[in-house]
Simulated scan of single mutants.
Amino acid sequence: MGDEHPLQMNNTSSSRCTFFNTEPDDYRCDVILKVKRATGTFSIVACSFMLFAIWLLRRSNSLAQKMIRSLTVAALFDSVAYVMGESHPEGSLCNFQAWWLTYFDWAALMWVCLITFNLYLNLVREIRTEHYKIPYHVVAWGVPLLMSTLPLMAGYYGPAGAWCWITDNHVGWRFGIWYIPLFSLIILMTCCYSRIICVANERMRSWLGTFNPERERRKISLAEEIRPLKWYPSVYLLVSIFPLINRLHNAAYPEDPVFFLTLLHVLSAPLHGLANALVFGKDTWSQLSITGIKMAIQSRLCDSTTIGEYHATNRLVEQLILVEQTGRFRNNNIHNL
């Protein structure tokens, strides 16, 4: 009885494994599928926690913060595609997974590009972008709809390794729809961030001299805004390089997949959501101390008052008016006596 269960599990594993020419006792499919689900789950948890932190700490006031929130939502739904069950056979469910994966991969990428573009307009071109909110959403959700629907309409989706995507018979579409635009945009973002950092350093050097509170506040705000974003092209490149290498090998040897490359592929591709949470939520995590969480929860759930900015000048004027009124009241009482 003890030997029957492992054999049954291995047979079930081989029946659902369509990306290796396996024997009944091959363990590789189970490893690939478990790693895929684990990394996808890590990303889902990270994105969910970041959305909770954004809500808890009220980090959605500025346009840049709202864009990071939208990016986190896209990354969360992208991670869901990697835990949508096992390796699906060709059919409507497989097409749905492929479309979902392509759409939210593109949505996350577009939000990263738009965050970079927005920072470039604010810092380098000195253009206010608050009124760009609707165009940003149209681009961020519209372009992925086009890029994910084209292969669906052409019938190019199907089993493509550990999940469903564009099949091995349409390699040109794989690179035209995703990999060529992806690495082109990574290069553009790298150049853009290089320009942003150069301009920011020039601004900070020009602000050296006599102490100015407003200037110091702008310097700190600028450094905090750029610090987490400047590393993102490198992070995105790291989580995309192994999928590219594996897809290049699949294109050259479609009938001979390599287990190690496939393992690196499923280990890194689902980590986009986790990478988003770590890079864009770095400053948010630093505020999540035990005391900070308690105060934020109390503010959110228990206190209905509105917290605004404290203006010392206005408070001083109110106190002077109160003193003057008190003095008049006393004088009137003395006069009546």
Rank of each mutant, 00 (worst) to 15 (best):
S304K: 08
T39V: 07
E4G: 07
T190N: 03
L146M: 11
I196H: 01
F329K: 14
A251C: 06
V45G: 00
R247D: 03
S240C: 07
T149C: 09
P144A: 02
T129S: 10
M84A: 10
V138W: 05
Q65C: 04
A269R: 11
K282E: 08
A81R: 04
E130N: 13
V73S: 00
Q298M: 06
L185Q: 10
W173N: 00
L152Y: 15
T116F: 03
L248S: 01
I186G: 00
L248Q: 00
H170Q: 09
V80I: 15
D30R: 08
V83L: 11
N122T: 11
A275P: 02
P135A: 04
A160Y: 06
T190W: 09
F280G: 01
L7T: 13
N61W: 10
I321V: 13
R205N: 12
K294T: 07
E126F: 07
A64C: 08
V279N: 02
R227V: 05
P254Y: 11
S194I: 12
S234L: 15
T291V: 09
F42V: 14
R59D: 11
M295C: 02
S14T: 13
S62R: 08
L7I: 11
T313W: 12
L301A: 05
G292C: 03
Q97W: 02
W55M: 06
Y157F: 14
N314M: 13
S87R: 08
F49A: 06
S48G: 15
A38F: 15
I32M: 07
V35P: 01
S234N: 08
S286A: 13
T291S: 11
E4T: 09
N333F: 09
P213C: 08
K66L: 06
A277G: 04
S194Q: 13
L51F: 13
L121R: 14
A275C: 09
N212K: 12
P6T: 12
R328I: 04
I115M: 11
V83Q: 10
D25G: 01
T116C: 14
V258G: 00
I334Q: 04
Y236K: 11
E90A: 13
A223Y: 08
P254C: 05
E309D: 08
K36Q: 14
P89R: 10
R315E: 15
L274F: 11
L278A: 09
G327Y: 09
A38C: 10
S206K: 15
L33E: 10
F211W: 13
L63R: 06
F104Q: 04
V31N: 00
L237D: 00
N333C: 06
M147C: 14
Y27T: 12
L301S: 05
R37K: 11
P233C: 02
I220V: 14
S194D: 11
V80Q: 01
L337E: 10
T313D: 12
M67E: 14
L121S: 05
N333A: 15
I196C: 03
G172Y: 03
M67H: 11
P233W: 01
C29V: 07
M153D: 00
T41K: 01
L93C: 06
N201M: 11
L229H: 12
F42G: 03
P89A: 08
L114F: 05
C164H: 02
F96Q: 01
F260K: 03
